Amino acid sequence: MEVRTIKVFTTVDNINLHTQVVDMSMTYGQQFGPTYLDGADVTKIKPHNSHEGKTFYVLPNDDTLRVEAFEYYHTTDPSFLGRYMSALNHTKKWKYPQVNGLTSIKWADNNCYLATALLTLQQIELKFNPPALQDAYYRARAGEAANFCALILAYCNKTVGELGDVRETMSYLFQHANLDSCKRVLNVVCKTCGQQQTTLKGVEAVMYMGTLSYEQFKKGVQIPCTCGKQATKYLVQQESPFVMMSAPPAQYELKHGTFTCASEYTGNYQCGHYKHITSKETLYCIDGALLTKSSEYKGPITDVFYKENSYTTTIK
């Protein structure tokens, strides 16, 4: 009895394709271990004539594949690729409408935090270190965002349907971005203890939790000093293409032309909904596939993004 075979390709990165001759009487799992086709788990399936010449994702289970996976995804987590594939199996079914010149995501599976993050990423200057993220990001900007969303979920250790947080998501993504040249110098002034300067680099240099107003941050924000008295913390120097200011959701007025974009969060910790506000020729609110415009805006804002380049204080 002759062994019926077909020729397929296996890959971990969709760049390096490895030619395989597979036995049609055995499952993919018996031949390769966990195997995925377009995100779908085909591990328990036997090869079919229609699979001839198709590319299958496999887990990096030998040295060659491990090197290829690390170079593309910059992670050695053995569960990463499987999590990416199972997320992709959902995100490829989502709709990605162009809204006001940006790629958004039609609401499904509690994905409003991903839509808000995706919209924000198209408006701030950011370059990702893992080629996987950078490639998928370019495709997302062009309207094909399924891979990018699935990668975000995998890097953030999230599953489809789980509630997510924009600030946490951005923080994970910033860790995989090139923020080497970003720098922030802060000064804390206390009447009792004097003053202390701190220099922050990388992710810490672009994120701040405690106030939404970048102007206020430049002037000074009140913080408790270690001595128990009130101290003032203010920005001395900022070198970065953008800054992200966050605070627990509270009524906040966004003035046209003073910011790049913002995240609105309605609801409580267990259950809520994100919308995205962007400042173009007027203010726009993007909620999944829905767009509304207004000249002014007041609502429960939790993150505001500002364009920056270089700032030095005039406070002496």
Rank of each mutant, 00 (worst) to 15 (best):
F128V: 04
T64Q: 14
L102F: 04
L118D: 04
A115K: 06
I15Y: 08
L118M: 08
L179H: 03
S240E: 00
E2F: 10
G164Y: 00
Y274L: 07
Q216G: 06
S240C: 03
V304M: 00
G53W: 10
E2W: 14
T211Y: 01
Y265V: 02
T64R: 12
Y234V: 07
Y96H: 09
T75G: 04
Y137H: 07
N61R: 11
N157K: 14
L17D: 10
G202M: 00
I152L: 10
I124S: 03
V42W: 14
Y214R: 03
K275T: 11
D77K: 07
N147K: 14
Y274V: 02
I15H: 15
I277D: 06
P78T: 07
F242I: 01
M209F: 15
K316I: 15
L254G: 06
Y57F: 12
T5P: 11
S86D: 14
T116S: 11
C112H: 04
K293M: 14
E125W: 02
L179D: 02
L119S: 01
T11A: 04
S213P: 08
L179R: 04
F148W: 01
R83K: 13
Q238E: 03
D13I: 07
T120M: 11
T282D: 11
V160Y: 02
I223M: 10
T64V: 12
K106W: 00
V67D: 14
H90F: 12
N49Y: 13
Y208R: 13
F217R: 02
E296M: 12
V67L: 15
A177R: 04
T266P: 04
R184G: 12
P130L: 03
T19Y: 10
S171Y: 15
Y72H: 11
S246E: 01
P47W: 04
L151P: 03
E125G: 11
N16C: 06
K219D: 07
K158E: 04
V3N: 14
S213C: 09
D303M: 09
T312P: 10
D287K: 05
Q197A: 04
K219I: 09
E68T: 06
F148V: 01
K183M: 12
M24H: 06
T260K: 02
C227M: 00
D109K: 05
E281M: 01
S295I: 10
K106S: 14
Q238A: 01
H90P: 04
V21G: 10
R83G: 03
Q98I: 14
K218C: 04
K298E: 14
G299E: 06
T19Q: 05
